[in-house]
Design a protein around this nucleic acid. Structure first.
Lengths: 265, 265
DNA sequence: CGAGTTATTGATTGTTCTCAAGGTTAGTGG
DNA sequence: CCACTAACCTTGAGAACAATCAATAACTCG
């Protein structure tokens, strides 16, 4: 009974969400989609619950609903959030031997998960789904890396003001799957969460948010974020999402020196 | 003649360095090693030269000698270094379609590179080397991600003093392949470089380095770093390298709440 | 309504940045 | 061998940004 109902639930889930874990529907064929639709839901994690502890073996999972955070604690209580897992983000789908997670994963809102073990199995066997999954994960891994790189840029070289703009532009792209992404979207992060992603104190986040509100750039209230002036926001923090695909020329291996005088810090 | 001499150079290169690009020799068989030994050297990049521009298509490369940095510039000249490429680190070996690099790559010292295109080809064909390369890259990707996560922790929640300790412990593990890694190792980064990885000003890096020297913890001079008290350094910044494999229990998907009162920021 | 979480405010302290100058070192050509 | 140059490192003073401490207000949910 229970197993059946959770399975039915997964079947009813929008399979587009699951396909996001492989960077979209494009590359997935009949068999792969069938595997995804067969994935079984796990018991939902309530807000605040630990989904995976640091150093634990990670089981393959895909988030279908809710927000989770990848996080680490220092011994004195300082906390760093590395990034967020949103619907369509996966965990532990690497193809190597079982490994331990370098970070903990915690539910921010209630989080619905499906067990992605069948996907891993399909990737270890021959079949059309194997290559599709591997390629999809590869593309997804590129997006994940880009997100970590953007996070490093925020923390390393952005002011508090810029950090908040940059993060919210980033989240906007991930929240709104519509095209163009909406300027108002659901964003359940508290100021405490924001402070832990952005490496700031809660108090300072609060003050900078007020400043941004006064500047009529963005507003966070009641679990929603509203970006009022996208162009201004982008100019402030030089945000370029994964869609920045203009520029760039031919393959170039070695050019002139570029190092000198480049630092402003 | 030229092609022959560059090829001979690559053949003479320690093939253990190349195998590092796949997380070591363990998983590599006869065929894979043969492919690695056949890789052709490219013209070396001088210190300061651009190896790959941001948004350019990246060609598969492996560093066999020297240090490079993955870096981005903001329009006002601020610079962020994301991480370093050391001998045995690869670039553009993802298996997906050709893609543009999200960051620039710049030589810090003179850098010797080999063209890893044959590796990519081997990964697209059937054969024993295919799986070995894919598995090796997978493991390597995990180490790369760990490095980015550590970098985020440094920038987000560490003081300047802790950042420097943490980075140097990290670099030590990567520089000394011997076991245990030596306490003195070659480390060609200038204080300007350090400031751009660590999100600090050059002046402040200089002052904190002096403090660390006075505290007899570490010393950087003449292209070498000396870590005088590993235990103290590790205690200061809670550094855990990729070898931290103790702890951790069984697979655990959902536990009690852990969120409350966790923030110290 | 009441308890707990989340947001806001003020005052103060501290870390880190900026600007500006001087010193050191290593390499180069005469 | 020495003057010269260009990186690189060091130092001081002042300012800006963000953290901390402490308290109060607003919201949320049962």
């Amino acid at each position: 009974m229970q197993a059946q109902s959770t399975q039915r639930w997964a079947r009813n889930a929008n399979h587009e969400v699951l396909a996001q874990a492989f960077a979209g529907l494009d590359g997935l064929g009949e068999e792969a989609v069938e595997i995804l639709l067969g994935l079984k839901a796990l018991a939902p994690a309530a807000a605040g619950q630990l989904i995976l502890a640091e150093h634990d073996f990670s089981r393959p999972l895909i988030v279908v609903k809710g927000w989770a955070a990848r996080v680490r604690w220092l011994s004195d209580g300082r906390r760093q959030i590395f990034d967020f897992l949103l619907p369509g983000d996966a965990l532990g789908l690497g193809r190597g031997a079982d490994h331990r997670s370098p970070v903990a994963v915690v539910a921010i809102t209630a989080v619905h998960l499906v067990d992605a073990q069948p996907v891993r199995q399909a990737m270890q066997q021959q079949g059309p789904a194997r290559v599709e999954f591997i390629d999809g994960l590869d593309e997804k891994a590129r997006l994940d890396e880009l997100r970590l790189l953007n996070q490093i840029q925020r923390l390393g070289r952005h002011s508090a003001y810029e950090r908040i703009c940059h993060l919210l532009l980033d989240l906007r792209e991930r929240c709104g799957r519509s095209d163009p992404a909406p300027t108002v979207f659901e964003m359940p992060l508290t100021q405490e969460c924001l402070s832990d992603v952005l490496g700031l104190s809660v108090v300072h986040v609060n003050r900078v948010l007020q400043q941004l509100r006064r500047d009529r750039l963005l507003e966070i209230r009641g679990g929603f974020a509203a970006l009022n002036d996208l162009q201004a926001l982008q100019d402030i923090c030089e945000f370029y999402g994964p869609t920045k695909r203009e520029l760039g020329s031919q393959i170039r291996v070695v050019n002139g020196p570029v190092w000198a005088g480049a630092s402003r810090s």
